[in-house]
């Protein structure tokens, strides 16, 4: 049984189909990136999964059940939604203690979770004075309270500084790969999650565009280098001799696999061939993602 399972999910708001027949699943021990431009339907999918939004049709299951049917949901699922879900006049610790009381967890979990996200020093400060990054950490702390095995995070990197993003990456990888949790993390910025995720699901205009493992989607993990030269016809056999697989795209343009840029440069130098471009091609994932995001 998959930790998270979404089957043919459909949800409209008035005339707008926010999510239109999306299906995918997330297994324990892996991080799945849920990617798409703003307004693609990511948040609606996640909120359906969490019982906050009622889907028109289809199913969104956690551990094989609808969220509302989970007897103690915070012990199974940790969720991070927007960074604004706090009363500004309440302290960080009190915010978490309210949740602990409602969930029947001991109040000591509040302090442990604050420690885990590095907010122990700010425990008694009112949320009013928190930066966006601190709010994100507090939101993450509330997801950790029940020690769940499934994490659902909506744009958790928003508002984090580069160090915070790096910390978050390590944290999510640790949860999935060391503790064996299932992690679903949405983002509209590929670069934020590319180094973290094992699997990718791409959505645009409410429809699933592409899904698979990161390795599958990045042209089987092979790097392709574009080489442009007026003497491409002479360069190609030389690169093949050096061990490269060369594809002749058009007059003067080659796509080379199996060699790095430095080797290609040396081969060209040895043959006294002028090269006007040596560029690493974007991976398939980036290409797909950019096509989707730049189109709007």
């Amino acid at each position: 049984m998959a930790a998270i399972e979404i089957k043919n999910l459909v949800k409209s708001f008035g005339p707008v189909k926010a999510v239109d027949g999306v299906s995918f699943s997330v297994e324990a021990g892996s991080v799945t990136g849920y990617l798409g431009p703003n307004g693609a339907g990511k948040t609606t999918t996640l909120r359906s999964l969490l019982g906050l939004v009622t889907p028109d049709s289809g199913e969104a299951l956690v551990n094989g059940r609808r969220y509302v049917a989970l007897p103690r949901p915070v012990t199974e699922v940790g969720a991070v939604l927007e960074a604004t879900n706090f009363h500004p006049g309440r302290t960080a610790r009190n915010h978490l203690r309210v949740l602990c009381t409602a969930a029947g967890l001991p109040g000591s979990r509040a302090d442990e979770a604050l420690e885990q996200v590095g907010l122990a020093d700010a425990a008694d400060k009112r949320v009013l004075g928190f930066s966006l990054g601190m709010r994100q950490r507090l939101a993450l702390a509330s997801a950790l309270l029940g020690r769940p095995r499934v994490y659902i995070l909506d744009e958790p990197a928003n508002g984090l500084d580069p160090a915070g993003i790096e910390w978050l990456r390590g944290f999510l990888r640790h949860l999935a790969h060391v503790e064996g949790a299932a992690v679903l993390v949405s983002s509209h910025v590929l670069a934020e999650v590319e180094q973290t995720v094992d699997n990718v699901v791409i959505i645009a205009k409410g429809r699933l565009v592409r899904q698979g493992s990161l390795a599958e989607l990045t042209s089987n993990g092979e790097r392709v280098i574009r080489v442009r030269s007026a003497q491409a016809a002479d360069l190609a056999p030389a690169l093949e001799t050096a061990g490269g697989m060369v594809e002749r795209v058009e007059d003067g343009l080659l796509r080379v696999r199996g060699l790095d840029a430095e080797t290609i440069g040396r081969v060209a130098l040895d043959r006294r061939i002028v090269v006007t471009e040596v560029t690493q091609e974007r991976s398939d994932l980036q290409t797909v993602f950019l096509e989707l995001t730049e189109g709007r």
């Binding site: 969490l50 019982g51 906050l52 949901p73 949740l99 409602a102 969930a103």
Partner: peptide, 18 residues
């Protein structure tokens, strides 16, 4: 209303979806 004003209703319903 403060639950709606500060969107704490989301956290409230995540803990208690019923």
């Amino acid at each position: 209303t403060s639950e709606y004003r500060y969107q704490t209703i989301t956290g409230t319903f995540l803990v208690t979806p019923r």
